[in-house]
Design a protein around this nucleic acid. Structure first.
Lengths: 214, 214
DNA sequence: ATGAACATACTACCGGGTATGTTGTCAACG
DNA sequence: CGTTGACAACATACCCGGTAGTATGTTCAT
């Protein structure tokens, strides 16, 4: 559906706030990031933030959701592709890692949100909103889990504990949100080389080994 | 050197505070964990904390350092062992992962500290103390890096970018601090099985592959 | 002139840090 | 051997800066 001009402007302002908030949450963590920080980084004041979002928790949830939307969007072209699991997994993983690099602040916010949920660091009223987001993310994880299972059936992946393997795989694929930072003069090709190293490492843990001795 | 009875008692109290603080930092993060929380979890008040530690930052630094001390202690038996890199790496990695599981609160605090340092979320006066801790941790990482290099020379490991590989490896080995939680009726053998899965996954990313095509 | 999109001004509260009590223990002294 | 005083190991009470949230202007486009 088309947005009117006014709605378009309002939506742009909303996205600007989300981006600034994501960066603040990444830089200082949820608790230490203040609404004033977010506003200041926009050259604005609290009034602007609270006009669009009812509370800090809701602002954070919006950042979380936007990050997850980006995730779905990135892997959507591949999830319904038929054929063997390995090449599809490679494309999904590559898209995922590149997204981690390209939208680091949002992905860090997602991470923070998951961590908070695991710790139970949410107030009861936030709980329902958060549960939806966590389920949203869980379903995203399912896309990879299904591919992992198919790959195991096909004999290209080797693992016995799906849950742990999935954790380790995502840990690897997500890790650039912590250690990646762009180098001066870095080209897109350079970024893709880095992403490929991450994907290859993650794949190594999934593939059959040549040596199995301790 | 032997401690007197009084010193022994004081040291025990200090360790109790460190343990409680580690748990609070893990459960709420650095910013959201209050000194009152730590004290409350000990059935005490702020006075006790501030009698032993001059500030929240110093308390956190002590938790960090204690966590790193545990790390060094765990891998120390292996670092000077001669012989091929692979078995030594396996032992070091296994000891590391088991420590992540056994001392999760402290290791989470170490993680939080590293993250804060990377974000520059430290005040100037904390900076010098923090830099020491980060260097302390960096040297610990060097123990693994050296083994990685030796393994590559021996032909058992395959990677081109040492820095990225090291990041990915540690990310995998550290990951239990996020997703591990003990199951009811879990035995030590069960824990070691989990740890072995982690080590194997990390090793998979280091080993030579059978297929290199995209 | 009406409401969206902000800015300004203010309140309430929480948490780090401090200043000051209180209690038990040990050591030296008479 | 009892007394005392000095200090460690806390608890209590308080201050104060920062922050989430609110209430109320102000401006501008439609």
């Amino acid at each position: 559906m088309a947005l009117s001009v006014r709605e378009q402007i309002a939506d742009n302002s909303r996205i600007d706030i989300l981006s600034a908030a994501a960066k603040c949450f990444m830089d200082r963590g949820y608790a230490a990031a203040s609404i004033d920080d977010v506003a200041r980084s926009l050259g604005a004041t609290k009034g602007r933030i609270y006009h669009h979002f009812p509370s800090k928790a809701d602002l954070f949830a919006a950042v979380f959701k936007h990050g997850m939307d980006l995730n779905y969007e990135a892997v959507r072209p591949f999830i319904d592709q038929p054929g063997p699991a390995l090449p599809r997994w490679r494309r999904m993983a590559m898209a995922h890692v590149l997204l981690m690099i390209d939208t680091k602040p949002f992905q860090r916010a997602v991470w923070i949100g998951v961590e908070m949920h695991l710790r139970g660091a949410t107030t009861p009223e936030q709980r329902s909103v958060f549960n939806e987001l966590i389920e949203y993310r869980h379903n995203y994880g399912m896309l990879f889990r299904n591919t992992l299972l198919q790959g195991r059936d096909e004999g290209v992946f080797r693992f016995d504990d799906l849950s742990i393997t999935n954790q380790l795989m995502f840990m690897t694929l997500n890790s650039p949100i912590f250690w990646y930072s762009p180098r001066v003069g870095e080209t897109r090709a350079d970024v893709e080389v880095v992403a490929k190293k991450v994907v290859d490492y993650a794949l190594g843990g999934l593939s059959k080994r040549r040596e199995e001795s301790a």
